[in-house]
Simulated scan of single mutants.
Amino acid sequence: MNAEAGRARRQPARQGALVSAARVDPGFSHRSWSIAHAGRSDCLCFFVADGVASLVPEDGESMELMGPAVVWIPLPTNGVVRMDAGSSGFTFSAAEEFVWRTVGDSVLAADMRAMMDQLVIATAEDVLPVIDELWTSFAGIVREVRVQQPGANAITGFHLGVILLHLWRSRGAAVAHGGGATTIQRFRQLVELHFREGLGVEDYARSLNVTRSHLHEACMRLAGQTPLAIIHARLIEEARTRLEQTDMSVEQVGYSLGFRDPAYFNRFFRRLTGQTPGAFRKSAFASAPAPGSASFAAWP
């Protein structure tokens, strides 16, 4: 089935140029939505109530989202959101001006606006305690957009505000509760999306809306590694995979992972593995089983 055929067939209702919303019912095939930034002036939000969805950034690897989850996608993002067959939930887009008007000038406005400029993922840990409220608000937006009764903008804005506040709470949960589990979970998600971009620990902390020391403490307590070690481990994992499974030269592997100096990539790889990339590739090829040598134990 091609991509067009896999897209959601229910066209979202429109509220002028301000809001578009739709309920996603379980189907027999996957549905996908393009989140290309070109010409887009709205923010996107997906509520995966049940099932599995994937966020596939244009310049990153797919990230799987297990329902229930809420994903807020800001304007600078490009890529595709895909919901697997059988999944259900809601989706809406809102013009930036409508979102800012909803947030208004409350005491939380500055924090919430900073949050809305970033990719936000509220996982089951955050969503389950408030899933009834979220369902009511997403369903309320769909209803108001379709019915278009007097006051629809105001009610839609109210429900949008509830959703944004719950997303804001989910972002601050790790700091407020001090446990760090949410922080490190989101940190690993961001690393998965951006590990090839050369971002520093400070960049990740800023995206997570936590201090560098809080991120360091959470990683050490729950993973036994520093944030930098986690970033480096992901780079090494990917480098090994590409050295083993592709015909790319060592220099090309380094470039594909964000290293602009082949010599530095060699030193980096050797420092963390004890081998140069070339030596690792040779040893990997030497230890690979010969074609047709699989034992009966490998049979299905």
Rank of each mutant, 00 (worst) to 15 (best):
A3E: 12
E4N: 07
A8W: 10
R10S: 07
P12E: 08
A13C: 03
Q15G: 02
V19H: 05
R23D: 07
V24S: 08
D25L: 15
F28H: 15
R31G: 10
S32V: 11
S32F: 13
S34F: 13
I35S: 07
I35N: 09
A38R: 15
G39K: 15
C43S: 14
C45Q: 04
D50Q: 15
D50M: 05
A53Q: 04
A53I: 05
L55Y: 15
L55H: 11
P57L: 11
P57H: 08
G60K: 10
M63G: 06
M63V: 11
L65K: 01
M66Y: 07
N78L: 04
N78W: 12
V80Q: 08
A85E: 09
G86M: 06
S87H: 01
S88N: 14
G89E: 03
F90I: 04
F92V: 11
A94C: 13
A94S: 10
E96G: 08
F98N: 04
R101I: 03
R101Y: 00
T102F: 13
G104H: 09
S106F: 06
V107C: 11
V107E: 14
A109R: 01
A109Q: 03
M112S: 06
M116V: 02
L119Q: 11
T123Y: 05
A124W: 14
A124M: 02
I131V: 15
D132Q: 14
S137K: 02
F138D: 01
A139E: 10
I141S: 05
E144Q: 09
R146P: 01
R146M: 09
V147D: 05
V147H: 06
Q148Y: 03
Q149P: 00
P150I: 04
A154P: 00
A154V: 11
I155P: 00
T156L: 07
G157P: 03
H159L: 05
L160G: 06
L160K: 03
L164S: 10
L164W: 08
L165G: 07
H166V: 07
S170A: 15
G172K: 12
A173I: 14
A174M: 08
V175Y: 14
A176R: 14
G179K: 15
T182G: 13
T182W: 05
I184Y: 04
Q185D: 11
F187S: 00
F187I: 06
F187H: 05
L193P: 02
F195Y: 14
R196W: 00
V201P: 01
E202L: 12
E202M: 12
E202G: 13
E202W: 08
D203T: 05
Y204M: 07
A205V: 03
R206M: 10
L208A: 02
S213Y: 09
L215A: 04
E217F: 08
R221D: 12
R221Q: 15
L222N: 06
T226M: 14
H232R: 15
R234E: 15
E237K: 13
E238T: 05
E238H: 00
D247M: 12
S249L: 07
E251Q: 14
G254T: 09
Y255T: 10
S256V: 08
S256R: 08
S256W: 12
G258T: 06
F259D: 01
P262D: 09
Y264V: 11
F268L: 03
R270K: 13
L272E: 05
P277V: 02
G278V: 00
G278S: 13
F280T: 00
A284I: 01
A286V: 02
S287G: 07
P289Q: 05
P289L: 07
S295R: 11
A298E: 09
W299Y: 08
P300T: 06
